[in-house]
Amino acid sequence: MNAPMNAAPVATKKLKVATTSLAGCFGCHMSFLDIDERILKLLELVEFDRSPITDIKHCGPCDLGLIEGGLCNAENVHVLREFRSHCKILVAVGACAINGGLPAQRNHLDLRDILEEVYQTEAGVSHGHIPNDPELPLPLNKVHPIHEVVKVDYFLPGCPPPADAIWKLLTDLLAGRTPTLGHGLMHYD
């Protein structure tokens, strides 16, 4: 079995954790912060690599990667692939990472029609042209959940997942257990 191999390094070496938000609203990260003072206990066990907490721009080799949000543009895909190649375990956190979520509700519309309506037809602050600065990542035709592009090891549903569900996932993984959520922690909304 894998358990002894996974369990041994926990006591000796801090696990590296990276987190990011792709096409998400950072609500899952806010829910993560809702673990409150438990974050101090977490910091005894893990060290953060790329994350909004550290502001590191690229992730190095990590034990665990938490992905919030789906894929709505080319940059999202690059970041996701970087996480997948550097993280031993990758978790899709929240509704958008799992099924596209709110951003995917544009999927039945044509992308050009949306851009024209937002930037040209509709009254608003930026009349006249669709943004095309080379620094802006190109939007994808449709928004996709992350499992359509990379292998995902675990899924944590919720919009956002409750802090207790995030804590359960982390403590299960740190203890070398397969994460499970019972009634009350498992929500799609």
């Binding site: 799992i98 596209g100 039945h108 499992h147 995902v152 675990y154 899924f155 499970t180 799609y188």
Partner: peptide, 20 residues
């Protein structure tokens, strides 16, 4: 939704159709 909770459906697994 309740049935999916009961059967511990953690992800849609397949590619989404996103029908109109």
């Amino acid at each position: 939704q309740a049935t999916a909770y009961e059967l511990k459906m953690m992800s849609p697994h397949f590619d989404m159709f996103y029908p109109d």
